[in-house]
Write a protein that binds this DNA or RNA. Structure first.
Lengths: 119, 119
DNA sequence: ATGAACTATGAACTTAGGTTTATAGCAACA
DNA sequence: TGTTGCTATAAACCTAAGTTCATAGTTCAT
């Protein structure tokens, strides 16, 4: 698969795919180069990138995620486990916040909240 | 209450409080000026800002939220209702994404996911 | 075999959401 | 009454996460 195919299958712009690679977010197992230096992606990269998208959307920064997936940095399993467990806790906090926000927004809909001067 | 009190009670830096005000995120009912041009906040601003914090954390941009709370823009109730309903839907999408991410992270912990070359 | 479409790179640019700095006017307390 | 601390503003600065641009090589369709 070439970069354009991956872009279409994941919905990520080509520029973003190249950017993620520069940020070490795409392990070598997913992408190699052909004779013309074109990127050739494995099929599995699509599922991987969909997970990455979800993780980056709310809970991870590129730097954090890169730390986790980048074997150059030689994090031990224990170190990675710690990061992941911490992240799961953070997600649970976000879930709590979201339930709170939803309540607040619903209260607005029902006219129970008003932060504006009446006039 | 002066700005330093609000900062301490909400955990928002003073610079952020001033910044939010410039972005029309703090309705006039919550803040007035005294004889020295110092900001004097009402007690209610603390709860309001805690809600704002939650909303900005994941689901709203400053601009969107300002649109909603800023009466200068004269949005009708119906227009605001539409924005809020849309936002609730988006939150539900985020909640779905988060459940997916959590699953993925737990699979990593259990060794069921591996995006790295074994060596 | 040539023009449109695809690929590559490095560098510059952009936007959101703040933070920091420079400068100056009040305040509070010994 | 002075000096430490709080407040104000405007403008400059910063970082993350991309995007766009300039330039150049490749490939595909006709």
């Amino acid at each position: 698969m070439k970069i354009n195919d991956v872009s279409k299958l994941t919905g990520l712009p080509i520029s973003t795919l190249r950017f993620y690679e520069r940020k070490n977010l795409i392990p070598d197992i997913f992408v190699q180069r052909d004779a013309n230096n074109y990127r050739i992606y494995s099929e599995e990269v699509v599922e991987y990138l969909n997970d990455v998208k979800a993780l980056l959307f709310v809970e991870f920064s590129i730097e954090e995620l890169s730390l986790l997936v980048n074997q150059q940095l030689h994090l031990t399993y224990e170190e990675k486990k710690k990061i992941v467990e911490q992240k799961i806790k953070e997600i649970e906090d976000i879930q709590k916040q979201l339930r709170k926000s939803k309540k607040f927004l619903k209260a607005i809909l029902e006219g129970k909240v008003n932060f504006q001067t009446k006039c």
